[in-house]
């Protein structure tokens, strides 16, 4: 029973922290660009403001536009149930790593459909670009997941986390590190971060993710924004839990849990700093240069699988 409660607390924490992570990244970016920047709780205020407003829906749009915000939100919540963050308990019996990949894919599929639904030009551009990016990055994600699945002999994320966390240093090797590197590129590509897409642009010809949200307003927009914040948090959490989970609580005792929470927060902060540094120091890649980066991620994951077999 205690493990179930802990798993639910963990999910609630992930869902509650998601806007904060986005706020922290924005604040860090502001500091690096010598700006003061909005307070780190600003995303909560933005979401609350949007939730109070009504939404305008195009006359020509169908039910797809109506249900997409809920589909996105629900699949992110289900995904959050599956991901271990500070303790190796979760509702993992609901699904494994593969289910996780396809929950993210479902979000993307519905977002792209909704962007096409209203028939605006920007939406069409956005969804075609999103599909280009996702078709290139999804194999990389699957291969890097397969690497850890091969290393640990299971595809359940909770078991992967606890096997790596308890086996000490013997699993650290080229395979694990290459898979981690490939997944980090996937974190940037999947969440519309800088070398792939710029999260702070509105109404630019180069936007990908924002272009798909242009038709949304008010409450629907809040749900879409919130789901993408949760998605970022989940990807960052998975990057640590699936590849370098050391520090996570593998048993339910007070000291282990306390350590787990502290280490988890430190890990989130570390990747937030990494993302902020990348976004402040790099320019967005041209769209036609993107396949180079994304194929690179695929090759990293491929090398990870290969070095599992060869070495």
């Amino acid at each position: 029973m205690a493990d179930l409660v802990l798993a639910l607390i963990q999910t609630a924490a992930l869902l509650a922290l998601a806007p904060l992570l986005t706020g922290i990244i924005r604040k860090l970016k502001a500091w690096m660009q010598s700006r003061r920047g909005p307070p780190i709780y600003q995303p909560y205020l933005d979401l609350a403001k949007l939730m109070r407003k009504g939404s305008v829906v195009s006359e020509d749009s169908s039910w797809v536009t109506t249900i997409t915000p809920y589909v996105c939100l629900i699949s992110m919540v289900v995904a959050a149930l599956l991901v271990p963050a500070f303790v190796t308990e979760s509702l993992g019996f609901l699904g494994d790593l593969i289910v996780l990949v396809y929950l993210f894919a479902m979000t993307r599929f519905f977002t792209a459909l909704a962007a096409l639904d209203a028939g605006s030009t920007f939406g069409g551009m956005g969804s075609s670009r999103e599909m280009l990016v996702s078709s290139l990055i999804e194999p990389a994600i699957l291969l890097s997941f397969f690497t850890v699945a091969l290393l640990t002999g299971t595809t359940s994320l909770v078991s992967v986390t606890s096997v790596i966390a308890t086996s000490g240093a013997s699993l650290i090797g080229p395979a694990l590190l290459l898979a981690f590197a490939a997944f980090l590129i996937a974190v940037l590509a999947e969440n519309a971060r800088v070398p792939v897409d710029n999260p702070s642009t509105h109404l630019e010809l180069t936007m990908i993710h924002e272009a798909m949200l242009l038709e949304y307003s008010g409450k629907d927009l809040a749900l879409m924004e919130y789901s993408s914040m949760v998605k970022l948090t989940l990807f960052v959490t998975i990057a640590w839990s699936a590849f370098l989970p050391w520090g996570v609580a593998t048993e339910i005792t007070a000291p282990a849990l306390a350590l787990g929470v502290i280490v988890f927060l430190a890990k989130l902060l570390t990747l937030a700093v990494v993302i902020a540094v990348i976004e402040s120091s790099m320019a967005k890649l041209r769209l036609f240069r993107l396949p180079n980066l994304l194929t690179g991620a695929f090759m990293l994951a491929f090398l990870a699988v290969m070095s599992y077999f060869v070495l």
Partner: peptide, 13 residues
Amino acid sequence: IDGLAALVLLTAF
């Protein structure tokens, strides 16, 4: 040794 060998291949890529 395995790590360095993997690094050599990685740099080839």
